[in-house]
Design a protein around this nucleic acid. Structure first.
Lengths: 108, 108
DNA sequence: ACAATGATTCAATAATCGTTGAACCATTGA
DNA sequence: TCAATGGTTCAACGATTATTGAATCATTGT
């Protein structure tokens, strides 16, 4: 993970609307949701949702696959893991064996 | 963790400069760094660093304590854990027992 | 081919964010 | 008390981002 990727991912999560979208998708696992379902659940205008989904897709936090005239979106959990690992890399460089992050995959 | 807190944390991490600051602080654990050391290592103008440190502090990602005329900053790892937990909450609502997030503390 | 449905793109506006140097405040030490 | 050092605040500019409806593209079903 390079810095540009990380910042664009964090930037994607820095919007309340996009955070809602990601969390909604996380809750729907491998099945994901098609755009129309997301728009209905979050009560968003189509064009606005499309804008945010594009942002999330470009950042690599969600994936999209075409199903006929529908676009199915899924959260990319592996990408989120990588992001957390990037953020907390070297978290125990100072004090070996005493990582304060429990349960999170780090470089420790 | 509420949505406003989460978005302001992600917004704080959405800047390359602030991401550098946080990762630098993570690497210095409980000891942390005083502002001047951060400015020297990242080669940042004082006023700019102060602006970014204020943003990070308000978001709750770093803490600050005064030491004489120095200001010592530390990464708040517990806050980062909470943030990750918020992001990935309900990650297995769809498929029980089959969480795709390994090693990350979630609601599973 | 054509109407209907799902979704994206576009242009324009309003609002927010990042950077900078100068000025200012706080603490230390002579 | 006064100079020196560490840090923050301020104002101003430029750049980026979010939102909206209308227009456009793609796919389905008759």
């Amino acid at each position: 993970m390079d810095k540009l990727t990380a910042t664009s991912m964090f930037e994607s999560l820095a919007s309340g609307v996009r955070l809602d979208i990601v969390r909604l998708l996380v809750g729907h696992g491998r099945e994901g949701l098609v755009a129309g379902e997301i728009a209905r659940k979050l009560e968003l205008p189509r064009s606005n949702l499309s804008f945010h989904l594009k942002t999330l897709t470009r950042a690599g936090l969600v994936t999209v696959t075409q199903e006929g005239r529908y676009q199915r979106y899924r959260a990319d959990l592996a990408a989120m893991q990588d992001l957390v690992a990037y953020l907390t890399a070297h978290c125990c460089a100072a004090e070996e064996g005493e990582c304060e992050l429990s349960g999170v995959e780090t470089s420790c």
